[in-house]
Every structure is written in C-alpha cells, then in structure tokens.
Write a protein that binds this DNA or RNA. Sequence first.
DNA 1: AGTTCCATGTCGCGG
DNA 2: CCGCGACGTGGAACT
Lengths: 219, 219
Amino acid sequence: MRIVVADCTVDYDGRLTAHLPLATRLVMVKADGCVAVHADGGAYKPLNWMNAPNYLTEEDDRWVVTNPKGETLTILFHAVHFETAMEMGEDPGLQKDGVEAELQRLLSETPWEIEPGLVLIRREYPTPIGPVDLLCRDADGVAVAVEIKRRGEIDGVEQLTRYLDFLNRDDRLGPVRGLFVAQAVKPQARTLAEDRGITWTEVDYDHLRGIDSPVLRLF
Amino acid sequence: MRIVVADCTVDYDGRLTAHLPLATRLVMVKADGCVAVHADGGAYKPLNWMNAPNYLTEEDDRWVVTNPKGETLTILFHAVHFETAMEMGEDPGLQKDGVEAELQRLLSETPWEIEPGLVLIRREYPTPIGPVDLLCRDADGVAVAVEIKRRGEIDGVEQLTRYLDFLNRDDRLGPVRGLFVAQAVKPQARTLAEDRGITWTEVDYDHLRGIDSPVLRLF
DNA sequence: AGTTCCATGTCGCGG
DNA sequence: CCGCGACGTGGAACT
C-alpha cells in the first residue's frame, strides 16, 4: 500500500464529471491498483476513487488513472507533504453474521413463528423471475408465498407482488396469497401490502436466535 | 487525520456481528471522528468502519469506538508498524455534473426531444405519493406522465406505474399515459413497460447538452 | 459475461 | 429526526 498526503486537485471523467478544487488530501493506492482520494472528514467514503482493474501513469506532478471502461481519474499534485509505502500481505477477510440469509434459515426452521399453523413446503421455491424465499401452506391448506427482508420496504412488496403474479398464473398450487416478513415493516410498505391483499408481519431476530440456540436443540 | 499501520484484530458489533482475524492493516481516523480499517486491496471500501458521531476510547493496545446507536468497533493492536498524524484543513468539496437532476432540467426545456409534439405542462407535478418528473401533453392533446432515469430499470417502471394509478383515478387531466425515459433502458424494463402500455425512449445526454450549449442559446 | 439482489449500503433532500 | 430516492452505488451469487 502506498500513501501520499499532498495539496492536489482531482478530476474524474466517466459516468459523470467531477472536480475537486485545490486542498490537502490523502491519496491511497492499494496492492490491487485501486486509488482513493480522502478528505479529513465525511465518513469512510473517499471523495474520488478508481477501482481495480486500472492503469496508473505517473508524470512529474500528475497521475492519470484509466480503467478499461475509458473512465479517468486525474490527480494534479501541487505540493507533497508526506509519502510512504508498505507491504501488508494478504488479508484473511471478514467473517459476518446476522444478515438476511440467516434470517431466512431461522424462519424456514420455525415457520409457525411467522404465523400460527404455517408449514414449510419449500425454501427458495423457483419462479421464472427468481426464487420465492419460502413457499408454505397455512392452517387452512392455502399456499402462501413468503418474502423475507431484514428491513421491510416498498421494493420488497413489489418483488413479492411479481412472484404472486406468476404463482397465480399456473394453478398447480391453487390460489397463492402473499406474506411479507421483516424485522421492521415501514409504514409505506404496510400500506402498499394491505392495498394488494398481502399480509405483513414483523419478527424479532434475537428471539429467533434464542429458539435456534444449542441449549434448546438438546431437547 | 491520523494513520496507524499495525497487526490487529477487529470486531464489529452492531447491525451485524463481524470479526477480522489477525493481519496487517491500515487504520484511518479522520477529523470528524470516523474510523476506517483498510486492507491492502478490495477496492476503496474499508473492511470495517464506524462513522461519526462516535466516541473513541484508547487503552494500551485496544481502541473501542462506540456510536450513539450502541454499535461498537473494537480494534486490538498486536504490533504497531507505523503511525502518523497530520492537519489537512477543510475540504472545499466535490463539484458534480451529469446526474439525473441535470437530465430532467435539459428534457424539461426540450420535451420534443423525448417525442415529437410533446409540450410541457409542469415539472415535478405533485401526486399523493410523490412528484411526477414531467407532466406533458402530446400532439393529440393527451396527458403524458414522464419518468426520467439515468439508467432505465424495472424499479423506474414500477414507480411510473404507481403515479399513473393515481393520476388516472381523478379525471381532471383525462386519461394519462406513461412515458419512460432513460439514457439506456434495460431489456427487462422494456418488457415490463410494454406489458403495461407504457412507452419507453432512450435519450442521448451529450446530444441534449449540445442543444443546451451557450452557443446555441445566442440564437 | 450479463443479470439480479443485498448492503453495517451511504448520501442528500424534504417534511 | 424520519422518510424516500439516487448513487460513478459496490459486490456477490447465480445463469
């Protein structure tokens, strides 16, 4: 990794055109070739960047970074205050837990937590426009398409609506109703769901994790 | 800004739980207090971060960053290879050009470039669920709701559909048809639009900018 | 390679 | 502060 702190101007020309007036900034070049220009504030996102793969050409006081799509990032150095480079080696990478996939796994194992009497038919039930998270049958024997989101927003309701259009076109399953599940369902999503006859429910992630805990699994 | 290069492990506990095994990384602390942990690769995004506002507590070999939402980022330093700090001052900020707002402005001034004979009634025409980009009237006097996107994808068609539902509920405008405009309309979006009787068109941004140029404005 | 969908999305604007 | 939509979204998974 290479670090340069310098007074510079920066121009990006690609999907849009952007310009940074002269100021002191940090320029970071990583081993994979990606370049990022950071100001001393404004969250972790750089002001400007160019992801790998790209080509970096260095002239006296000017770097030009070009990528295969023809986008360019031009850094004009007026004064370099500090510069260093170091080897850092490979990174073993980030271990994550608690994302949507986990929520889907938990609910597929305890569908009754979504709605009493609900029974799983299949997880990731395929349709021509993508898989439905859970396909279930309710206490009355009616097929239920379940869409699971961490946050329940309007997009998720639209997605479920498209699935239901398809599922109700062929009659192998009989009529299919929709059930929208999230840790929190936004007011707009609630309204849209209700308007379309889609049921919505909120579930508690920590509660589900408790049910799934190794202690309870002993029984 | 403060830069530390060190062998460290990192744990994030918040919206999810994440762990970084021991490796050499760069830790950046900006003037606004935000903290970012970078590996030497993997694009501009840090492996872990904590945005401002937050509190940083430093013990011997451990930093704990806490934010008001109760999320924590814990960095355990095993060996510090390099450390520095510098003043960079305020950044004048990024000047952008070429985004959706600009496209909307250009098209509102030249609606005939969308479709011959099209005349603007109002920009940002209000509906209960948000403003329609452009409300126009076509050569036959029929009202046209125009949705403008930089990239024409399925979401935009859904959005326009919702507007049309509302506009066609009250009959002050008479029947309203939809027109979906983007620099490029994806195949799926085309299909969905056509299926719903919505016209779609692609426009060339550079061409529109040419029309809008100061030279032509002299006439 | 093209497409879809998730994300600790982030960011900015308006109510 | 929340809601909502754009973003140079980026990135991964899957076809």
